[in-house]
Design a protein around this nucleic acid. Structure first.
Lengths: 259, 259
DNA sequence: TTTGTAGGTTTTATCAGACAATATATTGAC
DNA sequence: GTCAATATATTGTCTGATAAAACCTACAAA
């Protein structure tokens, strides 16, 4: 679990036992390079290294985390793949301007959600949902297959019968993702991570009142119904209504998060 | 430029001069690992290795491309960062289901655009633009700063005065990206790659008639005007109209591409 | 003074070969 | 047949060396 294996790591000559432990946050089963990518990525998104800045070089990371250069390199390659970095010989790894970042990437999004301006982040995600989801629902109403409809209805029903808030949120996520899939445009699929991230943030923020839950459930069922009846316009409107309801919850309680 | 440097690559004992050259497509200045990531990524998106398939192992790639294992590993890490792959010891690198792919990534998108179903790809991109851009224009009309407006107007004007089709397309791209930026939602920015990709595909497909160009220019100017006048509803409508016009061009001439 | 050019230096890029960790496959015991 | 121990193949990590690229410096020439 902990890094710094202290294996056969005896420097030639003197044995310096003064090097700092430098814990690298690790999740179970996650590789070292993944942990490093997470750590550096988080620091970049968080703003520790503003765009244009040159990161510490490989050797430096290698010694601060007590890992090999190759592990660091692989981590850096991952961040390059997400356009957070670009690196060239002699010049080092430079943080790219934020316009280049792939904000819709799952990891980048999660780092964003962890950064100080979490609240602004949630608002941005919510607004984005307003832009995309009503239209997606309309398309879903027009093109859904029976199989896709079953998935939507199933998730909606699970939402209603879920006993824990966590289970409800999970079903909620499935519901909205199923709609995206039913819309029949492949490019909508990656946006599922936004819904996931948004609902998860919401989950942390609020514990809803029973009345809120009842009302929200009705709004969801209305969406399900209109997609089932294949009414694009009404499905679009129903989603807009649901999102407006979520907006209220956010502005109403976002002030006092319960983290 | 060419790979296979044939340096001090003399195997112990016999010298086998029978190994195939195995050219790896390289761009000027691109590193080996980047070239490998491109090649493997393209093959995956193209469908050579369907989701669920296990890729050849590191050693195999290493010898087919005549590069070191580390170069291959770094390439694979990049593809993992885009969720095209996941890999575990003993089992190998397995292609992830397509729902996991980050389709909105610049590279993945470009691989998609190179794959056989290019036409379907273009249609999907175009439809996605219908979903997002009208709303983005409405937001831009409501929130643009004077500086952002100058950028939009500038690009629009350049479109009108461009002498080559390529220059026009470049200005066109800038125009739409500027609108996305002016909309004031950071999550819209990464969608710029879609516009880029879509217009570029379009560029390959059609050489427009002069009348088409004149009409398209008017439609763009109408968008510019409504954003300048800060009329969200009219801006939204103007973008829808432009996209509908583009649709016609695609269905009208998409049948006979001029590649 | 300015300009060009040749080295020197720092950093990433690539290579090679070893060992560790892990998940599957195989074998053996009961 | 079931379960546990062992073998095996593949990625993960480490080390240390060399190559290539880009910036910096010093110096020479116009």
């Amino acid at each position: 679990m902990t890094l710094n294996k202290e294996k056969n790591r005896a420097p030639t000559g003197t044995v310096s036992r003064t090097e700092p432990p430098s814990q690298l946050p690790r999740f179970a089963g996650a590789s070292v390079h993944a942990a490093i990518a997470n750590e550096i990525g988080l620091r970049i998104v968080r703003g520790d290294y503003p765009p244009g800045t040159v990161l510490p070089n490989e050797a430096k990371w290698s010694e601060t985390f007590n890992v090999s250069r190759s592990a660091v390199r692989e981590a850096i390659k991952m961040l390059m793949a997400k356009s957070l970095l670009s690196s060239r010989p002699k010049v080092g790894s430079r943080v790219e301007p934020r316009e280049h970042w792939n904000l819709l990437d799952r990891d980048v999004l999660s780092w964003y959600a962890m950064s100080p301006d979490r609240e602004k982040f949630l608002a941005t995600v919510q607004e984005f949902r307003h832009i995309v989801e009503p239209e997606a629902a309309a398309l879903a109403a027009a093109r859904r297959t029976d199989e896709q409809m079953a998935e939507i209805s199933g998730a909606c029903h699970e939402m209603g019968t879920a006993t824990t808030l966590r289970a409800r949120t999970a079903a909620d996520t499935r519901f909205h993702m199923a709609i995206l899939r039913a819309a029949g445009n492949d490019l909508l699929i990656p946006l599922g991570v936004l819904i996931e991230s948004g609902l998860e943030s919401l989950f942390v923020y609020v514990t809803r009142e029973v009345n809120d839950l009842r009302h929200a459930q009705q709004l969801h069922e209305e969406i399900e119904r209109q997609i089932r009846l294949q009414k694009p316009e009404r499905a679009r409107a129903a989603v807009s209504k649901l999102l407006a309801n979520t907006d209220e919850i956010i502005v109403g309680r976002g002030e006092r998060p319960q983290t």
